[in-house]
Simulated scan of single mutants.
Amino acid sequence: MPQCQKFVSGLDAGIDVVGGKWKVLILWALGQGPKRFGELKRELAGVSEKMLIQHLRELERDEVVHREVHHAVPPKVEYSLTGSGTTLIEALRPLGAWGCDRKERLEEIRSAG
């Protein structure tokens, strides 16, 4: 029987959905439009196939990513954001802007330490 996850706040719930480096980058990529698995893998240089599959499944479970199977030969699977995923991207945009503004300084600080 699956264990029930209890969140202590809305922020806790949101961070749990996007937790980890790859989930946010997957969402960001899908914010540009639907993508096939191979397109995502190429766009997210460094992600392993296993990790991409795992994160896509978790994002689908959390109803922020939609997986559509097109019955063709060869089979075609396409991933896109749900309405919930689109609102999540909008919530992440200010964080992305903050990171862009501070990226160089953060790199300096971390390379000096």
Rank of each mutant, 00 (worst) to 15 (best):
Q54K: 15
I15C: 14
L40I: 06
G31E: 09
H55M: 06
V47Y: 07
P75W: 01
V73T: 11
R93D: 09
R67P: 00
Q5I: 13
G85K: 07
V47E: 05
G14P: 00
A13Q: 11
L81Q: 04
L106F: 10
H55F: 05
T87D: 12
E39P: 02
L27W: 03
I53D: 09
G19D: 13
R67Y: 01
L59N: 05
A13V: 00
S111C: 13
L27C: 01
D16K: 06
G14W: 04
D101G: 09
A72F: 11
R36Y: 00
E68S: 09
G46L: 01
E63Q: 15
Y79R: 04
A72M: 14
P34W: 05
E58R: 13
A112L: 12
V69T: 04
L11K: 10
G19C: 10
P2E: 13
T82N: 08
K21I: 15
S111P: 02
K21C: 09
Q3C: 07
W22L: 02
R102Y: 12
H55W: 06
M1N: 05
A97L: 06
A97I: 09
I89H: 03
R102M: 07
E78Y: 03
L56R: 03
Q3G: 13
P75M: 10
K76P: 00
T87R: 12
E108A: 07
E58G: 04
R61F: 05
R36I: 03
G46S: 02
Q5W: 04
R102D: 02
A72Q: 15
G10K: 13
H71N: 13
G83Y: 09
E104S: 11
H70A: 10
E43G: 11
L56F: 00
P94F: 07
R105H: 11
A45M: 08
A29K: 14
A91S: 12
I15F: 13
S9D: 04
A72P: 00
G20Q: 08
K76C: 15
V8M: 09
G99N: 14
G99E: 10
V18F: 01
E78V: 15
G20P: 07
V73Y: 07
G20I: 10
P94D: 06
Y79T: 05
E68G: 10
S111E: 15
S9R: 02
D62E: 14
L92G: 06
G83P: 06
G46D: 01
G33P: 10
S84Q: 15
V24M: 15
R36T: 04
E43H: 08
G14S: 05
V17W: 01
E107W: 06
I109M: 11
G38F: 02
V24G: 03
A91Y: 07
G33V: 06
V17C: 09
G38D: 12
M1I: 07
L81K: 02
P75C: 03
S84F: 02
E58L: 14
H71V: 14
D16Y: 11
A91Q: 08
A45D: 12
R102H: 15
V69Q: 05
A91K: 08
